Amino acid sequence: MNISQNNPAMIQSIERALNILECIANAGGALRLQQIAEAAELRTTTAHNILKTLGALGYVRRRPHDTRYYLGDRILNIARIAGDDSGLRRRLRPHLEAMAAHSGETVFLAVPSGDEVFFLDAIESPEALRTASQQGERTPMEGSAIGLLFLAFMPMLRQRMLALHTDRIGSAITEEIESITARGYALDEQNYQQGLSCVAVPWIEDGELRAGFGLSGPSVRLPKSHLETLAAMMQGCCEG
């Protein structure tokens, strides 16, 4: 239904774009182009052009070897913010506790929030020399292991950040993002802060990254070999 025809103050293109997002959501989060056009009562070319814009902005995405359109990183981020962060924190707290118990280091749960990392939850290490909790804090996306993890596993977010912040995201960061994608987790060996090392793993549901778990501590206790061992342990906690 075209409501804008009866209300001159409404912008038709915005109405159509929101209608397409609702159609995808109502279908369970994925639809093919022809299905979207039929559900939104649009010509296929019109629907395709709107989807291209929504895709460039990160509101829809397509997966490799899949012709369907999915809700993108930015719409999922809006849904999370509008929803219940405390519910996500409660649901993932047992995984965080398992990581803390197995590692003895400071562990945290973080989510993408706009173009920043937001730390939802954390458990500090009992060691005297430890990393402090960042719960409730926000940090730049491109600076830390957890931020680079989000950029590696959220293609639309990565494209937007590269387009907006070419001055801050250089070739070295781009290469590291590719390495993270290949190995499945992020490592930081004193890059973000001298004397501090970190490892981060993704929390994925229905094929999409929803959050990230991180572990950090003094570099003297966390050489690269131990970080890699902790990455496997954290991935096991996520699966368990």
Rank of each mutant, 00 (worst) to 15 (best):
L109W: 00
F108C: 06
S13N: 11
W203Y: 09
D121T: 01
R158G: 12
T46S: 14
L222P: 06
I180R: 02
L92N: 04
I14Q: 05
S133T: 01
D66F: 07
N77P: 09
G114V: 02
R130M: 09
Y59Q: 07
L51S: 11
I78Q: 11
D66G: 06
A37L: 07
M1G: 06
R158H: 14
L230V: 00
A231H: 03
F153D: 04
Q34W: 12
G114N: 02
T46Q: 12
R32Q: 15
L129E: 13
G240S: 12
R160F: 09
V220M: 14
N2D: 14
H65I: 01
Y69L: 01
G28A: 11
M234I: 00
L227T: 00
T229E: 11
L21Q: 05
K52Y: 09
L33F: 05
A163K: 11
L51R: 08
Q35F: 12
N2E: 15
S225D: 15
H95W: 06
I123P: 02
G83C: 11
E116D: 12
H226F: 13
A200M: 05
V117E: 09
L164K: 11
G195V: 01
V117Q: 06
S144F: 09
G114T: 00
P8R: 12
V60Y: 02
R90A: 11
S133G: 05
I24T: 03
V201D: 04
A132L: 12
Y185P: 06
R89W: 10
E137P: 02
V111R: 06
L148Y: 01
R16C: 13
H102D: 13
H65L: 09
E228M: 07
R80N: 08
G83E: 12
E97N: 07
A9C: 10
M10C: 13
D206I: 03
I11E: 13
C237E: 06
S197Y: 02
V117K: 07
Y192S: 11
Y69I: 00
L162T: 02
G28D: 05
G236C: 10
L209N: 03
A172V: 10
G147Y: 02
A145K: 05
G236F: 09
L88G: 10
T44L: 14
P112T: 02
Y69D: 04
L92P: 08
A37M: 05
A231W: 02
P155D: 05
